[in-house]
Write a protein that binds this DNA or RNA. Structure first.
Length: 883
RNA sequence: GGGAGCUUAGCUCAGCUGGUUCAGAGCACCUGCCUUACAAGCAGGGGGUCACUGGUUCGAACCCAGUAGCUCCCACCA
């Protein structure tokens, strides 16, 4: 049969993925086995696959495939997130292209368009996941706005509200006066701009303050927003500012409006900035708002939702805030209040959508009280019930959980679960799952219940995705604690591992833990593997706007899914950022090719029962030991989630140990058959290697698995048993290492003397114990291409030589030896050995070392001394004889 | 401003309890090879003041303190 010289991924990937699907290998239903469960971090429903997904889902697939092979009932639940902000923005943009403005259509119409959009684009990312080999149970695919998933969110809201953990409150939001909507913090872009800093003086009110008897004292504040002066309700200074200490507690008079407001003190103030005195406008600045809360200040909202001055401002009513800024500066100057202006640089928050300057604005929002929910969620991480990997994130997690503010869950959007609160005409409200229930509740409270209106806002997307690990199995249990659950939830929950990006540790991970404890009384997962962020070569985050993100699907076409998977994993230790470069995928592709060619070699052999095994038996014994050694190592590496290290271990085992050593060792001369025993063993090893490779490179391994032997329909590697480590034969490994070193030394001589690999070299050995060389004699002559070994009692004159342990080796090259160079080399080696001995003696000569160090360490040093002395003696002899 | 972390070879990173796995791996690089599985390959090789300065110790890449540079998260500059 003719096999291509290179591995061709395209021919095998789709074929096997479809095969796995057809045979339902990804499917999981509860049974007697122990479950191993992962829920996918649901990607944005309208999203397309990017490198972050690629990394994330490759890791999940490695874990799930390994678990499946190890006999667990592996269940990976896929799905998508409705992502209210992002999706709504996309739908709005799509409508705009059609010439439709969101403001001109009803909520129902808009949602119609949104669902249409979702149906059209919602499946893309999941289809892409199949291309990378993700072995999800697709029958379990979930969407956070599936009817029952949404119902769970509503139930959750009602439950928490009834428990007193959800409340309505005033909060400062980022108001976009152009879009006339609140935007999230993530949608505000801070941009440095040149601004003017206005120094304005306020008159200090006299003691028995009245307008007639004006004091002549002033305090000067500095502001970039003089138009908000009309809403000032205090002036604030630092409590230890000598310039102002005497003024604390007095009052000042706000220009124009002549409002009398207090001078308060707070350490929030930066004494160095401006004059060290701050005007406080609680309605239009987030910090001022906090100050207002702390010091009980009046809140005067002077700017309306269009960004124009409101009636409460008293002056400039209806004027745009920026026009007002210019005008008030002129007027302040005219009236003598303006001291000076300065040019400064500061940051402006701009709306990502409209580019309008964000106006901090107070509004009524819904909140979740985090105190009670955070406490158990912190405890389970601190006591290790939930493990964060890498561990360093525990500190960050703790800091956040101890200081977390209440969670604002209302969003001024339409795409999402609508807040189940109903209002009557008087502004009274109840929270209820349905309108009918709301009517009942109004009646109980004796409120008017006609003409009820539901709250216009929807809930934060995280308020649905925090239920994900529960609701994908049983959405009906989110009404409260200890609800009876279905079989799935009982079996799969808590899940095992969660794989996600550290950026959403707080947004999502922490909240899932809270929800898990609140609604199930149990954590949602045992381990959280936090991946790094995929960056480009220059260390920049990959982003659409930069255009620096390669398309994973294109990469797969170029390097094969296995190659890209391997490329992602190679350089991605947990929690470390991954500066991505295509060359990693190239390395992955090359590796796939290497495996392919090893297969071609083995497959091409003719097998015979009539040939003796010679020292192939040694090769088998050795490789078996190495394999066991690596299996033990893999166990540890997976235990610690060191996936890139695990992959590297397998990589080296396959490339170096199996291909470079083992196969070369047993490879029959061209045209000759291989003995059946060795062949069988080799196929067995190949199978084991494919198995441990399979979680990383699912496609090529499945392909070769079937090429290696005849299999029945369901005998696939995806469900084969993962190899178990046996006891490691360390003796054979040690002996073989000596032989390998010997071979390498001969190859080095060959290389430095520029001799062809085809030239057969003589080899003489001076040793006290011939047994090992006799045992490996075939191995040596074959792999180093030497004549039969000659044992000598005397040094071979004028031969190239080297020393391993106490044994001396000679390669007689006839005239082809440069005595001077040889001497030079030996002198160098001698020098090194002497230096080494010196450092060892320094240690041993140190009484404190001998007295304090562990006995084993001292013994080890003594052995070093003996070895070094032996080597020095040998070298000196050799040098003396080289003349 | 608050918090967390990083700095080891050209690049990406290991180095776990201070001492033979102590200075490592992969890639890149250099030299020689189209050797009958693979040039996407084979064989060999070079390369590091472990950021800097002190301290603890018989002994420090590792522990402690300080300095410099970098990254991330949160809060944001009136």
């Amino acid at each position: 049969m003719m096999l291509s010289k290179t591995y061709n991924p395209r021919e095998v990937e789709d074929k096997w993925y479809q095969y796995w699907l057809d045979k339902q290998f990804f499917k999981s239903t509860p049974d007697h086995r122990e479950p191993y469960t992962i829920v996918i971090p649901p990607p944005n429903v309208t999203g397309v696959l990017h490198m972050g997904h690629m990394l994330n889902n490759t890791i999940q697939d490695v874990l799930i495939r390994r678990a499946r092979m190890r006999g667990y009932n592996a269940c990976w639940v896929p799905g998508t997130d409705h992502a209210s902000i992002a999706t709504e923005a996309k739908v709005v943009a799509m409508l705009k292209e059609k010439g439709i403005n969101k403001k001109d259509i009803t909520r129902e119409e808009f949602l119609g368009y949104a669902w249409e959009w979702k149906e059209k684009y919602g499946g893309i990312i999941l289809e892409q996941l199949k291309k990378i080999g993700a072995s999800c149970d697709w029958d379990r695919t979930r969407f956070t706005m599936d009817a029952d998933m949404s119902e769970a969110v509503i139930d959750t809201f009602v439950h928490l509200y009834n428990k007193g953990l959800i409340y309505r409150g005033v909060r400062m939001v980022n108001w976009d006066p152009q879009g006339k909507t609140a935007v999230s913090d993530e949608e505000v872009i801070y941009k440095e701009v040149n601004s003017k800093l206005y120094y304005v003086k306020y008159r200090i009110a006299s003691e028995e303050e009245n307008a007639e008897r004006m004091s002549e004292d002033w305090i000067t504040i500095a502001t970039t927003r003089p138009e908000t002066i009309l809403g000032d309700t205090a002036v604030c200074v630092h409590p230890h500012d000598e310039r102002y200490e005497h003024l604390i507690g007095k009052n000042v008079i706000i220009p124009f409006v002549n409002r009398v407001v207090p001078i308060i003190a707070d350490t929030y103030i930066d004494k160095e900035f401006g004059t060290g005195a701050l005007k406080v406008t609680p309605a239009h600045d987030i910090n001022d708002y906090e100050l207002g809360l702390k010091h009980n200040l009046q809140v005067i909202d002077t700017i309306d939702e269009d960004g124009k001055m409101s009636p409460a401002a008293q002056f400039y009513i209806g004027m745009d805030r920026f026009a007002c800024r210019k005008q008030i500066a002129i007027d302040l100057e005219e009236k003598g209040f303006l001291v000076k202006t300065e040019e400064i640089k500061n940051k402006n928050g701009l709306s990502e959508r409209t580019n309008a300057v964000i106006e901090p604005k107070l509004s009524v929002q819904w909140f979740v009280n985090m105190k009670e929910l955070a406490k158990p969620a912190l405890e389970v991480v601190l006591d290790g019930e939930v493990k964060l990997i890498p561990e360093k994130f525990t500190n960050t997690y703790r800091h956040w959980m101890e200081n977390c503010k209440d969670w604002c869950i209302s969003r001024q959007l339409w795409w999402g679960q609508r807040i189940p609160a109903w209002y009557n005409e008087d502004g009274q409200f109840v929270v209820a799952k349905t309108e009918a229930e709301a009517v009942e509740k109004f009646k109980i409270q004796n409120f008017k219940s006609n003409n009820l209106k539901q709250d216009e806002d929807v809930m934060d997307t995280w308020f649905s995705s925090w239920l994900w690990p529960i609701s994908v199995f049983d959405p009906s249990v989110c009404k409260g604690v200890n609800q009876p659950s279905n079989e799935d939830l009982a079996y799969y929950y808590p899940t095992n591992d969660l794989v996600t990006a550290p950026e959403i540790l707080f947004f999502w991970v922490a909240r899932m833990i809270m929800a898990g404890k609140e609604f199930r009384g149990q954590v949602p997962f045992k381990n959280v593997y936090l991946t790094g962020i995929v960056r480009d070569k220059q260390g920049r985050k990959m982003s659409k706007s930069l255009g620096n993100s390669p398309d994973p699907i294109e990469l797969i076409e170029k390097f094969g899914a296995d190659g890209v998977r391997m490329g992602m994993l190679l350089a991605a230790p947990a929690g470390n950022d991954l500066p991505f470069d295509e060359s990693y995928c190239e390395q992955g592709r090359n590796f796939a090719n290497k495996i392919w060619n090893a297969f071609r070699l083995v497959k091409g052999w003719e097998v015979t029962e009539n040939t003796a095994q010679t020292d192939n038996a040694l090769a088998i014994e050795w490789f078996d030991a190495r394999l066991n050694q690596v299996l033990v190592q893999l166990e540890e590496q997976f235990e610690q989630y060191r996936l890139s290290e695990a992959l590297m271990s397998v990589y080296k085992l396959v490339w170096d140990d199996f291909c470079s050593w083992y196969l070369e060792w047993i490879k029959p001369p061209f045209g000759e058959p291989i003995d059946a025993k060795t062949y069988e063993a080799t196929i067995g090893y190949f199978e084991k290697l494919l198995k441990i490779l399979h979680p990383f490179m699912p496609f090529i391994t499945e392909e070769l698995w079937h090429e290696l032997r005849e299999r029945t329909e369901k005998e696939c590697i995806i469900v084969a048993n993962y190899p178990v480590a046996n006891e490691v034969n360390t003796a054979i490994i040690a002996d073989t290492n000596t032989i390998f070193e010997l071979i390498a030394q001969i190859r080095t001589i060959r290389n430095t003397k520029q001799l062809s690999p085809k030239e057969v070299l003589p080899l003489a050995v001076k040793t006290a114990d011939r047994s090992i060389y006799e045992r490996f004699t075939h191995t040596i002559t074959k792999l180093a291409n030497t004549q039969a070994i000659v044992f000598v009692d005397e040094k071979v004159e004028n031969a190239a030589g080297f020393i391993i342990d106490k044994d001396e080796f000679f390669v007689d090259l006839g005239n082809n030896i440069d005595v001077a160079a040889e001497r030079e080399r030996m002198l160098l080696e001698l020098n090194y050995a002497k230096g080494f001995l010196k450092s060892v003696m320094a240690k041993l000569g140190n009484e404190k070392f001998v007295a304090n160090a562990n006995p084993e360490v001292v013994a080890a040093e003594r052995k070093k001394q003996a070895d070094a002395e032996g080597k020095i003696a040998l070298l000196e002899q050799s040098i003396a004889q080289l003349s």
